Amino acid sequence: MKQTIIVLGILLSAFWASAQTKNADVKAIEKQVDAMVNSWNKHDHSGMKNYCTSDCSWVNIVGMWWKDLKEVEYATQFYHTNMFKYTTMTNKGVSVRIINPTTALVQFKSYVSEFTTPDGNKIPGSDDIALLVYVKQKGKWLMTAGENVVIDPVAKKNDPILHMGK
């Protein structure tokens, strides 16, 4: 009986420690997403190395694929200087799924305000969703890949999941 209680105590302690670490990791990742949003809203992406890996990649909303931090930072800053300089991004929700102790998938919902394309087209504000991959390097969570899409409100009405039985 005494051994059973000791084993149970050890298992509960390990479970509690794991849950605490997972909560700390989720909070750390959410903080990194906030850093990305802050860069957007300041229109200054020179600090991306603080929340992205050097080999990060990004597929933007229209399918452009940037393959390392230098390209991601340059292209993002280019568009913020030329197209997004008056936009704001609002964090509408972050969902973190820890895959293993050094890898996490994040779904990040946001709202990006109206902007004007280089050829003068006004694009209305939209809800977007991004799939982000984070890795833990030297104790810090960094984004290593991302892709975002506009949430199409017309198509969303036809999502089969809305009609799926429980």
Rank of each mutant, 00 (worst) to 15 (best):
T4W: 08
I5H: 04
I5W: 05
V7F: 13
L8N: 13
G9T: 00
G9I: 00
L12D: 00
A14P: 02
A17V: 00
A19N: 08
V26T: 06
V26I: 12
K27C: 03
K27V: 07
I29Q: 06
E30H: 13
E30T: 08
D34R: 11
A35K: 08
A35I: 04
M36H: 10
M36V: 05
N38H: 11
K42Q: 10
K42F: 09
D44W: 14
H45L: 14
S46I: 03
M48D: 14
N50I: 11
Y51V: 12
C52D: 13
T53H: 04
T53N: 02
S57H: 12
V59R: 05
I61W: 06
V62L: 13
V62C: 04
G63Q: 09
M64V: 12
M64G: 14
W65N: 14
W66H: 12
L69G: 03
E71W: 00
E71S: 06
V72E: 01
Y74A: 15
T76D: 05
Q77M: 03
F78H: 10
Y79W: 15
M83C: 04
M83K: 10
F84T: 06
K85S: 13
K85V: 13
Y86K: 12
M89T: 09
T90L: 05
T90R: 07
K92D: 15
G93P: 14
S95G: 14
V96C: 08
R97I: 10
A104C: 02
V106I: 00
V106G: 01
Q107W: 15
Q107E: 09
K109Q: 11
K109G: 08
K109E: 10
Y111R: 07
V112K: 07
V112L: 08
S113L: 07
E114I: 13
E114T: 15
E114P: 10
T116F: 08
T117V: 10
P118K: 00
N121Q: 13
P124A: 00
P124G: 12
G125K: 12
D127W: 08
D128N: 15
A130I: 07
L132D: 08
V133H: 08
Y134A: 08
V135D: 09
V135N: 11
K136E: 04
Q137A: 09
K138C: 11
K138Q: 14
G139K: 06
K140W: 07
K140R: 06
W141P: 00
W141E: 00
W141S: 02
M143Y: 04
M143T: 01
M143K: 11
T144L: 02
T144V: 02
G146L: 02
N148M: 07
V149G: 12
I151A: 10
V154M: 11
A155I: 12
K156C: 06
K156T: 11
K157Q: 12
D159S: 11
P160M: 06
L162A: 10
H163V: 09
H163G: 04
K166P: 07
K166D: 13
